[in-house]
């Protein structure tokens, strides 16, 4: 009976296989980002000139300066070459390096995404567990009904409803932004919830928290619905397994049987789903940030589209793609960690 243990080699082989998949994905992203934005009529120079317009000769000159006069395929070639050298270019609008802009805006998006996923996990996993344990009860039907609604709720509409009710009507939460303009917070980590703790003023922290509530709910709703449904179905399957009968036959408490023996197994598929939510979160962040004027990556990318800021869009999408893929890789590795069968049999 060979006893196979989790070896470094297995792990390396696994990572290498996964990383080799990254290359075609990247080529896909660069192609998409590059050509799609150019399908949109207009160019950055026209947008910058705005309603005043610009004379043809100056337009041509500027196009030449930005290298936009060359054939598309040549432009793409230059672009890929620069990317390979680690140069994502500069924003046509702000003349700031894309990477620098990304770095300064990224923490805002991450903070929002983390809050959203925590919100989704904190509500979704318990709701899914209880729904599975009390299957076909009113609670179960209620949770599944609400989660179906939540899943199909358009973010834009949902965000506006929440703003109308809680910000405008009741006035509990601020309408937009990350923090009240009264406060200036020195960026240390870039996460306002943490940075405000360094200031002596607790009002700053509360303000940051208050600004996070609605965007968190809006962005977290879809993952919440997905996680609740996934937890429920995984849990239902696991609860019928032989080892759950064994756990009960040992005389363990209901809480231990469900919360430890069943949940541990049910979490395996749920973790995968959580990993997939990273992509969903970024997509959702684009809309959520736009609704709440949240100064993050999503809003930045949307503005780049309106301004035809090609480098920002190309670079931004590439970076987002890289992050989504890395997180998925990490999740896959965690999957191996929490599932001993995968860990040993790969």
């Amino acid at each position: 009976m060979p006893l196979r243990l989790f070896s470094i080699q297995d792990m390396l082989r696994f990572i290498l296989t996964r990383v080799s998949l990254v290359i075609p994905t990247f080529i896909g992203i660069t192609l998409l980002a590059f050509f799609l934005i150019r399908l949109v009529p207009g160019d950055p120079i026209e947008t910058m000139a705005g309603e005043r317009g610009i004379d043809v000769a100056r337009h041509e000159q500027l196009k030449k300066d930005f290298g936009l006069d060359k054939p598309l395929i040549v432009q793409y070639g230059y672009y890929v070459e620069r990317v390979l050298h680690g140069d994502l270019g500069k924003s046509i609008v702000t003349r700031e390096s894309v990477l620098t802009e990304f770095q300064s805006l990224f923490p805002a998006t991450v903070e929002l995404a983390i809050c959203a996923i925590i919100f989704a996990l904190l509500l979704g996993i318990p709701a899914g567990i209880v729904a599975a344990v009390r299957r076909n009860s009113i609670f179960d039907h209620g949770v599944m009904g609400i989660s179906l609604t939540g899943y199909s709720m358009p973010i834009f509409w949902w965000g506006l409803i929440l703003i109308l009710v809680f910000s405008v009507q009741i006035g509990w939460t601020p309408v937009s932004g990350r923090i009240d303009v009264l406060y200036y917070v020195e960026p240390v980590t870039g996460f306002l919830l943490i940075d405000t703790l360094f200031t002596e003023d607790e009002g700053a922290f509360l303000s940051a928290l208050g600004h996070l509530i609605l965007p968190t709910i809006v962005l977290g709703t879809q993952p919440l619905a997905t996680i609740a449904r996934m937890t429920r179905s995984a849990m239902l399957e696991v609860l019928g397994e032989d080892y759950i009968r064994t756990a009960k036959a040992k005389g363990l408490s209901r809480f231990r049987v469900v919360g430890l023996h069943a949940l541990r197994n049910a979490l395996i598929p749920v973790v995968t789903v959580i990993g997939l939510q990273v992509g969903v979160l970024f997509t959702g962040a684009i809309l959520t940030e736009t609704i709440f004027s949240w100064p993050g990556i999503g809003k930045w990318l949307i503005e780049a589209i309106f301004r035809r800021d090609y480098p920002v869009l190309q670079g931004g999408l590439l970076l987002v793609g890289a992050i989504v893929m890395s997180v998925n890789l990490i999740v896959d590795l965690t999957y191996g960690l929490i599932n001993p069968r995968i860990r040993h049999n790969r």
Binding site: E241, D242, Y243, R245, T246, G251, L252, H261, I338, N339
Partner: peptide
Amino acid sequence: RRKLTGKDVAMIFQEPTTSLNPCF
């Protein structure tokens, strides 16, 4: 009753491999 089950009365099953929890 749970104080008795697993202590004074115990049970083993047909499929030993699926009767043990794969995660522990």
